[in-house]
Nucleic acid binder design. Structure first.
Lengths: 341, 341
DNA sequence: CTGTTAGCGCCTTCAG
DNA sequence: CTGAAGGCGCTAACAG
C-alpha cells in the first residue's frame, strides 16, 4: 500500500485504465454528458474513480471548458459587520450554485478596487458581485471577458451592469416618518459620503419626510461621515455637541448607528430617552446593541439570492435592475418597545 | 476601431506577432524569467502588450505552472465580526503576497468544512488558512496535493499542519487576574463548546487564576455556549438568573461578550457597576459597545502575517507552531476607566 | 539571447 | 454507445 512518491497525481487516464475504457468516457460520466453512457460502463467508471482515488482537477477543467466555477465578490471592507453579513449570505448562495467565492477587500480604495476587478477578470470568474467604493467603476475588464457583473449595495445608475438594491429614498423616508410619529421635533442625520448616490438618496428620503411634516430647517442638522462605526461616532458627537442638539438621529447605516450609540454613551445621554436613534441595514448586530436598534432592514438573503440569480444570466445584454423590498424593524432605540429592550 | 466580435481573446500569440518575437519570449518578459531577455526586445514586447491589450490568462498559467496564485480561507462564520476582522487582515496579507483569496464559510458545520477543504484542494490553492469547526479536520485532500495548511484561531494539537495562535490559558488567566484585582468575589464564565480545545483552555486559565486566589467553588459558575452573540446572550442570562449571580463575568470570546452586555441590559443591570464583564479577541467591535469592552486582545495583524508567512514554506515537512503574544486592553466594562467610557 | 515544442489535465467534436 | 485526437493558453525544457 505504499503509494509511489513520484506519482501523487491521479488523472483521468488512471481511471480509464482501471475501468477499461477511454478517458472520454470518464469525462462523460463525471459531467453527466455531453454524450450518454451505458449504465454498466458508468458503474464501472464510478468504481474505478473510487478505487484509484481520483479527484478532478478544477484548474484543468476550467481551462478546457471555459467555466471556472468561481464567483468574485468585492466589498469595501469585510471587517465592517454589514459587509460581513452580506458576504455570509452570498457565500451561502454561491455554494448553493455549486461555486466557490473569491473575496476581494478593496479597503475603501478606488485604485485597489480597480485592481481587484482586473485580477478577478484575469482569473476568469464566472461572475462578479460588486459592492463598489467607486461611483463609476471601470467594468471593462469584466465585459471584455464576458463576465456578468451585479452591483449590490452601493448602486449608481448609468452602470453597465445589473444591480440589486432596495429603494433607499423610500426606506429613509419610512424611518423618518416613524421618528416623526413619535413626536420628535428636531432631527439629525448621519449621512454617508456625499459622492455616493445611496448616501444622497438616504438624505433625500429623510428630507422629504421632514418637508412633508413641515419641520423647520432650523430643526434639522446633517453630519457627513464615512459608512463606518468610527465615522458614526464622529458625526454623532458633532450632532450632539452642536448648537441645537437633535431629539432624534437617523444614522444612514448600521455601522454609523453603532458609532452614534457609542457617542451618546460618551456624552452621558440615554437612548432613547434623551436621544432617539434609528438605523439602516439591520443585520444581527442591531439585535445586540444596547439598546437594540430600530432600522430599515435590508433583507440580505433576498438580495443575495437575487444577485446570484442575475449572475446566471448571459453577460453583456441588457443589464437588469432589481428592486428589493425593505422592512421597518422597531426596537428600543427609537422609543418603541421600551420594555423589551 | 470596431473590435472583431469573434475574437475577444487576446493571447500571447498576438503579442508575439506584434512584437515580432516568439511566444516564449513573451513569457520570459512577463515572468521575468526563467531566461534572460535583451533589454531592447523586452521593451518591444512590453509595447506590444500595451498595444494589443494583452491580459495573461490566470487559469492557463496556473495549469501550466502548477501555481494558482490563490490562497483558501475557511472560517466557521464570516458574519461573526471576529472572523470578519480576521478575514480582513488575511485578505490584506494575501494581497501583499500577490495572491487572491478564496473564501469558504463552513457555517459552523463539520461536513460543510470538509467539503470546502476538498473543493479548495481540487482547485489547487497554493495554501490553506483554516479556522476549523472540527477538532480534527481531515487534511488529506490538502496533503495529497502538497498544499500547506495553517490552522488559526481554533488550534488543536496533533494536527498535521502548522498553527498560529496565542496562549489561550495565559490570556484567560491574565483576564481573570485583572478581574480579581478589582476585588470581585464571585465569578462566572461564558465558555465555548467543550469539544473545542481553545474553549477548554480558556476555562482552564480562568480556573487557574481563581484557584490561585482561593476563590471558593461556590463562587464560580460556568455556562457553556457557542462562540456567538446569541450564545453569549443565552449563557449570560443563565448566569445572571442563576442562584448566585456572579459579580464578574468572563466571556471567552468577543461575540459572546456582546451577548452578555445585551443580557445584562435586558435584566436592567449596569455594566460594570452591577456586573463586570471582560472579553476575548478584542477587535474594533469592543471599542463600540456600551460600555467598551475590556479584553485579552488577539493581535490579528500579527497573526495574519505569521499565517501567510507560514504558507510560504513547503508543504508536508515539519509543521511549525507559532505562538503570538496577546495584549490586555482595559476599558470600562471591567470597572477600569469609568470616566472615559 | 531567442525560437520550437512538448506537455499541464481535461473537454468535446468527430469518427467509428 | 465508445474511442481518438485536437485544442484551451501558457510554461519551461531543449535546441539553436
Amino acid at each position: 500500500m505504499t503509494p509511489s512518491r513520484r506519482r501523487a497525481r491521479v488523472t483521468r487516464e488512471d481511471v480509464a485504465r482501471a475501468a477499461g475504457t477511454s478517458t472520454a468516457v470518464v469525462s462523460y460520466v463525471i459531467n453527466d454528458g455531453p454524450r450518454p453512457v451505458a449504465e454498466k460502463t458508468r458503474l464501472r467508471v464510478l468504481a474505478a474513480i473510487e478505487e484509484v482515488g481520483y479527484e478532478p482537477d478544477a484548474i484543468a477543467r476550467a481551462l478546457a471548458s471555459g467555466v471556472t466555477g468561481a464567483y468574485g465578490l468585492i466589498v469595501p471592507d469585510i471587517a465592517n459587520p454589514y459587509f460581513a453579513a452580506l458576504a455570509h449570505v452570498l457565500a451561502d448562495a454561491t455554494s448553493a450554485a455549486d461555486r466557490v467565492l473569491l473575496l476581494g477587500d478593496s479597503i475603501e480604495d478606488v485604485a485597489r478596487e480597480a485592481e481587484l476587478i482586473r485580477s478577478f477578470a484575469r482569473r476568469k470568474v464566472d461572475g462578479l458581485l460588486l459592492a463598489t467604493v467607486d461611483g463609476r467603476p471601470d467594468l471593462t475588464p469584466a465585459s471584455a471577458n464576458r463576465i456578468p457583473v451585479v452591483v449590490i449595495d452601493r448602486v449608481d445608475p448609468g452602470l453597465e451592469a445589473s444591480t440589486v438594491a432596495i429603494d433607499n429614498v423610500a426606506a429613509a423616508r419610512a424611518v423618518t416618518e416613524h421618528l416623526l410619529a413619535h413626536g420628535y421635533d428636531s432631527h439629525g442625520i448621519v449621512s454617508g459620503p456625499a459622492d455616493l448616490l445611496i448616501a444622497r438618496e438616504r438624505v433625500q428620503g429623510w428630507s422629504a419626510a421632514l418637508d412633508a411634516a413641515r419641520v423647520d430647517q432650523a430643526h434639522r442638522s446633517v453630519a457627513e461621515a464615512p459608512f463606518s462605526r468610527a465615522g458614526g461616532r464622529e458625526a454623532g458627537l458633532h450632532l450632539l455637541d452642536g448648537p441645537t442638539r437633535p431629539r432624534a438621529i437617523f444614522a444612514s447605516s448600521e455601522a454609523q448607528a453603532v458609532g452614534v450609540l457609542s457617542a451618546a454613551a460618551e456624552r452621558g445621554l440615554r437612548v432613547p430617552d434623551d436621544i432617539a436613534v434609528m438605523s439602516f441595514d439591520g443585520t444581527e448586530t442591531s439585535d445586540f446593541t444596547v439598546p437594540k436598534l430600530s432600522s430599515a432592514v435590508q433583507p440580505l438573503d433576498e438580495i443575495a439570492r437575487a444577485a446570484v440569480s442575475l449572475l446566471g444570466r448571459k453577460a453583456g445584454i441588457a443589464p437588469a435592475h432589481q428592486l428589493i423590498g425593505f422592512d421597518l424593524r422597531l426596537r428600543a432605540s427609537c422609543g418603541s418597545h421600551r420594555d423589551i429592550g
